[in-house]
Write a protein that binds this DNA or RNA. Structure first.
Lengths: 252, 252
DNA sequence: TAGTGGTCTAGACCACGCG
DNA sequence: GCGTGGTCTAGACCACTAC
């Protein structure tokens, strides 16, 4: 990585810096390698630390870097493909996916969820919390909202553990015939609880996948899953195949 | 919007500030309304402008605010649903979508694109640039890579305008029988050219949708579309239906 | 030209991880 | 305890928009 000073150009310093760093990452660093610390990098490029950080933030947003407080900045591996919309329609928790039930509560859903479920407000629903792990890393935290009409027979077993209750709700749900589903993806920032589950700081960028499951002529369940935007590439259709690791990355 | 000072709490000021502002947006502002400027807001909350900006950045990332240099900060409308993966497989540019061909060049693709197309490197491909408009706003900029094998008969008409050439390439492409397609979504930041097309600054957060189109037993075309992450919610499956406007937003 | 958001600086202190 | 990235400050100047 060069030590050249930045010239006076019309484009912002942090933007130029990002380009320089990006090229250095391609040519002089390998995955997992640790970069010099921010104070040293800033000094080396002759900019304030805040400016350098702006460049690093962008590179982290693009999945090129990973920064951890108390540890350092490392070169991130290519994003992993995570299948979120397969051809065959399946209930959440069916198939060989790495979802893991964490807990289950019975509570009134947020207003927007109640609206999507066409459930009367103030009507409690099962809220199943799940966690998705891929390649040994947590990639998603999900809240699955299941109206009591979709999973009755739950009153008898509230003595079990939360995780057990979650599995029972899922089992009940799977008894219904799934008629269809649709999904939406949007950018968000991790709430405190999701962030903990994803091993990130609150506010970290996430891809929020909202999926509606239809059965018996109504919305039988609603899933709101937040995926780590830095490490994940969400795939729809044929799953998990390697496509592009990034817009401008070298072919491996 | 209150004028209360922030207390000393363990959570970051900008995070608390974001929460306060978010609630104020819900209760005291309506869509399109313009907020006080950053210097005044910072003073009102008793923080440095940089800290205030950190909160605004997050809210903009979540699609709650829109900031324009020289103008001000306004309350953003709910994100619009944009269909990107419909059930029936269709070639790009077929159907009632608002894509508009901008130009077309013949050039060697980036290495990663060449790999995905299973095309020999250094082999030129048609690169069609398109623009997608929804509700009167530009929402996506796309580069569609079409190998010459997928659209021959183009040599005779290179005298036409760029936009006309683009349409011809698309027409050629549509002659093939589409066998399948798959997509991937990931977070990125807008390159300078895409940013201009999207009416944003370079580096703005975008959702990059990479779609492979299969025909004649091979990858017949590859699309890399960058959607404005602040204004768009990408929908897969049944299109465009209103689902959730955000994770915790009030039902309208 | 006035006012806005965007960039940049040179400091300071804090929270966390690791040895 | 030390080094890391995370937060915060109080300024300054620039680029753009609208009048």
């Amino acid at each position: 990585m060069g030590t050249t000073q930045l010239e006076s150009v019309p484009e912002p310093k942090y933007w130029h810096l990002k380009t320089v760093l990006s090229e250095a990452l391609d040519s002089e660093f390998s995955v997992g390698e640790i970069l010099p610390n921010e104070r040293e990098l800033a000094a080396r490029f002759g900019v304030a630390r805040a400016t350098l950080r702006q460049a690093l933030e962008q590179l982290e947003l693009e999945g090129r870097l990973q920064r951890r407080r108390g540890v350092g900045t490392t070169v991130a591996p290519p994003r992993m493909g995570v299948a979120v919309g397969t051809e065959q329609r399946v209930w959440p928790g069916v198939g060989e996916d790495a979802w893991q039930a964490v807990g289950c509560t019975l509570a009134a859903p947020p207003a927007a969820v109640a609206a999507a479920l066409e459930t009367p407000r103030e009507q409690s629903v099962h809220i199943v919390r799940r966690s998705r792990v891929s390649h040994g890393q947590p990639v998603a935290a999900e809240l699955l909202y299941v109206p009591q009409t979709s999973a009755p027979e739950l009153s008898a077993i509230d003595a079990s553990s939360e995780a057990a209750r979650a599995r029972v709700v899922l089992r009940e749900l799977h008894r219904l015939e799934l008629q269809g589903q649709d999904s939406a993806v949007e950018l968000g920032s991790a709430r405190a609880d999701d962030a903990r589950q994803l091993d990130r700081l609150p506010g970290a960028p996430v891809l929020v996948v909202t999926t509606r499951y239809f059965a018996e002529g109504r919305t039988a369940a609603l899933s709101v899953a937040t995926y780590r935007a830095d490490t994940c590439r969400l795939t729809f259709g044929a799953s998990g195949v390697e496509i592009l690791h990034g817009q401008e990355r070298q072919a491996s």
